[in-house]
């Protein structure tokens, strides 16, 4: 069972992801509404899979990815963002993310992207 952490400043999106992931494969260990809270939760709970928004207050997603990967390079991070351009996707991958889907997304999009990063 993979330990999943959800990071997004929107409660609606956090709850949506929490409802849609494959419960046979993932166990939700917690959610965070900004990058700074995500770092704290990561250190307390050691998730191995993270969904990460990019545009957030306090600490944005790109900086948060960098900090999570510096703590544990094996962490598998799926970016879920409204930012729909290739340059930000490439930047996230260069920082250590393993996948990227854009909002709005379907439940099937989410399940497929999560499966892809854990199978990678």
């Amino acid at each position: 069972m993979h330990r999943l952490m959800i990071v997004d400043d929107s409660k609606l999106i956090r709850q949506r992801i929490a409802r849609e992931y494959d419960a046979d494969t993932f166990e939700l260990i917690g959610t965070a509404e900004n990058g700074a809270d995500a770092i704290d939760l990561f250190e307390q709970s050691s998730p191995d899979v993270v969904t990460m928004d990019l545009t957030m207050p306090k600490l944005d997603g790109i900086d948060c990815i960098e900090q999570l990967i510096s703590r544990d390079p094996s962490t598998k991070i799926l970016v879920i963002s409204a930012l729909n351009d290739t340059s930000i996707g490439i930047e996230a991958l260069e920082k250590g993310a393993m996948g990227f889907i854009t909002k709005p997304f379907s439940g099937a999009d989410l399940k497929a992207a999560l499966k892809e990063i854990i199978d990678d």
Partner: peptide, 16 residues
């Protein structure tokens, strides 16, 4: 939360 998320998504998608 929802109205903010829609605004974020519509503007973020425009970066394409």
């Amino acid at each position: 939360d929802a109205v903010g998320e829609v605004a974020n998504t519509l503007s973020g998608n425009a970066r394409k």
